[in-house]
């Protein structure tokens, strides 16, 4: 089967600093990839190149066969098929929860208001936020905001969801509610790429773990292999550091 997302020889520079070095990887339909690694290793940069929030200087990213960074790519159309969840939620503060979810389906996809609202309420119900449909983001806790942000991304019915450290900005007691929504998505067969420091989540939900350091993917393995017998020395050190805590 053809992979849904293919990274071929991705290079990314910030001036003189090389943030990503010759990344080669694939994500298949239905696969859950968790990207982990120390801070500053390029995880967030990598996930942000997938929907072109970051430019790349070399290589090619194919999404459903389309060259995302190609000069003739229809970026808006491609982005509308890639759900993205941010560390800092980025809900639109001037819109109610419901309007946050409805905005893009109606304005980008052209879905009728009533149909979009119905769909939005179903999604909000799925993330346990239907009772706050009329509230504004500023009235919600971080965990609630992130769950709304997931519903907002799902409203475009994307075949793939990207999560960029979705729980890093949350108080510890709110991490669980967001992870359980993500766990549910994975169970339903959603293709997912997650950058996260939640190693229990990675162990439990991931099909594949990519371990990154210094802008490179050093190891790709199943959670069983990665957590028990990683092959790269840097990954071994990462795992033993985790155990010692």
């Amino acid at each position: 089967m053809k992979p849904m997302i293919t990274f071929s020889n991705i290079d990314k520079w910030y001036g003189e600093y090389r943030a990503l070095t010759t990344i080669n990887a694939e994500i298949s339909k239905g696969e859950v990839v968790v990207v982990c690694g120390p801070s500053g290793s390029g995880k967030s940069t990598l996930i942000r190149t997938v929907n072109r929030l970051e430019a790349i200087q070399g290589g090619q990213i194919l999404f459903e066969g389309h060259d995302i960074h190609g000069t003739d790519a229809n970026v808006n159309r491609l982005r509308s098929r890639i759900g993205f969840v941010f560390q800092s939620f980025n809900l639109f503060p001037h819109l109610s929860v419901l309007d946050n979810v409805v905005l893009s389906p109606t304005k980008v996809k052209g879905i009728k208001g009533s149909a979009a609202k119905k769909q939005a309420m179903e999604l909000l119900d799925r993330v346990g936020m239907a009772h706050k449909a009329g509230a504004y983001p500023g009235q919600l806790s971080g965990g609630q905001q992130q769950r709304v942000a997931i519903a907002r991304a799902l409203a475009m019915e994307p075949p793939v969801m990207l999560f960029d450290e979705p729980t890093s900005a949350l108080d510890p007691e709110m991490v669980g509610e967001v992870l359980s929504v993500m766990r549910g998505l994975a169970k339903e067969g959603m293709t997912m790429m997650c950058v996260t420091h939640e190693m229990n989540f990675a162990r439990e939900v991931a099909d594949t773990i990519w371990f990154m350091d210094a802008g490179q993917i050093l190891e790709k393995a199943t959670p069983e292999v990665f957590f028990s017998e990683p092959s790269h020395p840097r990954a071994q050190r990462f795992i033993s550091d985790l155990r010692s805590h």
Binding site: L53, N76, R79, S80, F86, F92, S104, R152, A153
Partner: peptide
């Protein structure tokens, strides 16, 4: 307005 607002809207497919 934080950059995240632009990023979030663009990520949803808005031009």
């Amino acid at each position: 307005i934080p950059d995240g607002q632009t990023e979030a809207s663009r990520a949803l497919g808005m031009g």
